[in-house]
Amino acid sequence: MTDRSVRSLEFLERSASTARVLNLLKISRENRDSPEWRERPLFQTPALNTCLLIKHRLRRNETDAFRGRRQTATKVIVPIDNGELRSGGRYVFVNQINFEATLLEVFGIQPEHPDVNTLRLMDQLPSLDPFLMREQLRRSGIDPAPCYFALSDADLQNMLNFVKAEITPLVALCMGDASASASSIDRMASKILSNANGDGMEALGQTLRLNPEQYQEGVFCWKGFLYYKWSLKSMTSQIADVADRVGSVQVAGPVDQAAREYIGRGRQVLRNKIGKTCAGVRATLQIYDEAYASLTQEGNPLDFRDFLLEAPYLFARLGDQLGAIQHIVSFWTFRFGPRATAVGAEELMDIFMDFEIGLRGRDETDDAIAA
């Protein structure tokens, strides 16, 4: 299949990776001289290791490509010409019907090839956020070079500090003391953020009466909740700033009546959808907050057990919601930075359409979206 969304492909190719887009082509260009990039690739197949991966909200005519019902899919776009994105690209959805046959035909990859497993692991995630993607791969024994994740030491330390503050009540509960020592908090935070299956916290799983598989999956999603909660807190001011700038960004060059009407509508629709999506994120996080408070403040483990059992579904919903917001903030910061060129009407309409599709609620259809 061929992706003819040439303008969108060019925008994606020029931009940095976001929670919705993993730009392996840009990463390869910036790190091709790095020994780590050559020795620890994300994908062993060269064409895959220079592709673009997108968490794509399926349109009505695309849902038939899958056996089961789903709202989003991982789209693999391989440019026809890496040096000229106007040529378009071929694409395939991970786990679409005849997925393995397509990989064999296009890339010569057998079903048991490690790259197939890597694609499927990434497809299980609700977003391509670098922290969660790294955790998902590492718990399956896959450890690509750091350049694929763009996580700064400062971000990792800030995340660790947030987790420490979050779990202090749990440590105090486990110790039977109102106060928890710094060393105890450090140890438990390290265990929660551990990539190993045997994280030394099996006693918690036994207390909650979860089998090992339920416990491991629940804790991974709990880790995701903690990360998303930190992300929302750290992005709050940026989200408000982007929402304001959506309403005020100026268009360069001529603007016809149809473009003027679309952009005017897009400003209001996007601002409303950003607010509605943030409210949805907070509502999903509230489910966790209440279950955690029931455990740590009331000593009732049942609500937290129920949360861990439901966590995979809630994690997917939360990642879908917040991933769209993270993508908008990251892309807007990249495209409209201090040295950015002026934006024309056609490009701004493409950007608004991309954002609107990403923010579309699960109960909405494609009828209101132009193809």
Rank of each mutant, 00 (worst) to 15 (best):
L232H: 09
D199T: 10
C221D: 09
R139W: 07
P169A: 03
A145G: 07
D155H: 08
L170I: 05
S140C: 11
A165M: 08
R245G: 09
D241C: 07
A172Y: 04
L193S: 04
G205H: 01
D177R: 10
E135T: 11
A172Q: 01
L204E: 01
L173Y: 10
A165I: 08
N195R: 00
L170W: 12
A145C: 09
S194M: 01
D143H: 11
Q238S: 15
F225L: 02
G224N: 04
A243R: 11
S194G: 12
N195Y: 15
A154W: 09
M133D: 03
A180C: 08
S237F: 12
V163W: 12
F220S: 05
G200S: 03
F149T: 05
A240K: 06
L232K: 00
G198E: 15
L160Y: 13
S179V: 12
D199C: 09
R134T: 10
A182P: 07
A243H: 01
A180P: 07
K233W: 14
Y148M: 00
F225H: 07
S183N: 06
E166Y: 15
Q216H: 14
P146D: 11
V219C: 02
L173G: 05
R187S: 15
L151I: 15
I185K: 00
L170P: 02
A203Q: 09
L156P: 02
Y228P: 07
P146W: 11
R245F: 09
V246Y: 12
D244G: 08
R245K: 13
M175L: 15
L232W: 12
S237H: 10
A182M: 08
P169R: 01
A178I: 11
W222E: 00
L173P: 00
F220K: 00
A203N: 08
N161E: 13
S234E: 14
I167A: 01
V219F: 11
Q136V: 07
W230H: 10
M159C: 12
R139H: 09
E135V: 13
M159T: 09
T168I: 00
A165L: 13
A172W: 05
L210G: 06
S152I: 07
S152A: 04
S140W: 13
T207P: 00
A145R: 00
N197H: 14
S190K: 02
F220Y: 15
A154N: 06
S184I: 07
S248N: 05
G218N: 03
